[in-house]
């Protein structure tokens, strides 16, 4: 396959970026999108140019490191698929592909296509955990958890923290991500004691990190590679409201 690429290049956080055009030929349709970029980089290095920086690690759709907005859609628009799992056979020979970093002010560009998603870590640090001192846990089977509850907790916990939800959202809202974690932990019996605190603290951290407000567009769930449902935002809203009322009344 032969392709034209329009790639965002930026030296560092403080400099301005620009699109640069590249051409690449003889790409196997069996190669993955990132492998296509690997080959582009090999060619750039050969010419003595700086390679295009992009994030990646596991390359099997689970670590959440890869990003990229491809032709305007984070992770390229194939349902339930991360960029690293996207394959070139999904593109047309001769096509022009636009490649940009994930876009949000809370995700500053560090270089080229690499962004800083540290805001997500901050949200988790604020309350995305269930406190349990090592060694103090009871026997694992002491608290049975109904299978449907455990299964849906898993669905929520499947989030890989990639940030596509934020990048797809015209409001740069992190509510799908935050909602997924809150829903995961708040739905399990072990997570209940910290439920209210968690909802309040994580939402506060989310706001603090500079993410926007959800306006119920639903783009996030459509691009989420783990197909996290919009439900989690509704659940989070509900938990937050309950926590607020309790906080106001001074109960719980």
């Amino acid at each position: 396959m032969n392709l034209k690429l329009k790639i965002w290049r930026q030296d560092d956080k403080s400099s301005a970026g620009r699109f640069q055009d590249y051409e690449i030929s003889d790409i196997s349709p069996d190669s993955s999108f990132l492998e296509m970029l690997d080959l582009l980089n090999e060619q750039l290095v050969e010419k003595g140019e700086e390679s295009v920086a992009f994030d990646h690690d596991c390359r099997e759709g689970v670590c959440g490191m890869c990003s990229l907005t491809i032709n305007g859609v984070p992770h390229g628009g194939e349902r339930g698929t991360t960029t690293c799992q996207l394959h070139m056979r999904k593109f047309q020979d001769g096509e022009t592909i636009t490649i940009e970093p994930f876009r949000a002010n809370a995700f500053p560009v560090l270089r080229d296509l690499v962004v800083d998603r540290g805001g997500f870590d901050k949200i988790i640090q604020a309350g995305g955990f269930i406190t349990c001192r090592v060694g103090s846990a009871q026997d694992a089977n002491l608290t049975p958890i109904p299978k449907p509850v455990a299964d849906s907790a898993f669905d929520f916990a499947a989030c890989i923290g990639c940030g596509a939800c934020v990048a797809s959202c015209k409001n740069a809202s992190a509510m799908l991500f935050t909602g997924a974690k809150i829903s995961h932990m708040n739905s399990l019996p072990h997570g209940k004691p910290e439920k209210d605190r968690r909802a309040l603290a994580m939402v506060a951290a989310m706001d603090e990190a500079g993410f926007g407000n959800c306006r119920n567009y639903g783009e996030c769930a459509a691009v989420c590679p783990k197909e996290i449902p919009l439900d989690v935002i509704a659940k989070m809203n509900r938990d937050y409201a309950v926590a607020t009322v309790k906080d106001f009344l001074g109960i719980g």
Binding site: F129, I130, C132, V134, G135, S136, A137, Q138, A140, T143, A150, D151, A153, F154, A157, H184, M185, L188, H190, G191
Partner: peptide, 8 residues
Amino acid sequence: QCVAQGVP
């Protein structure tokens, strides 16, 4: 330990 931490 893991179950208590919320591993589903």
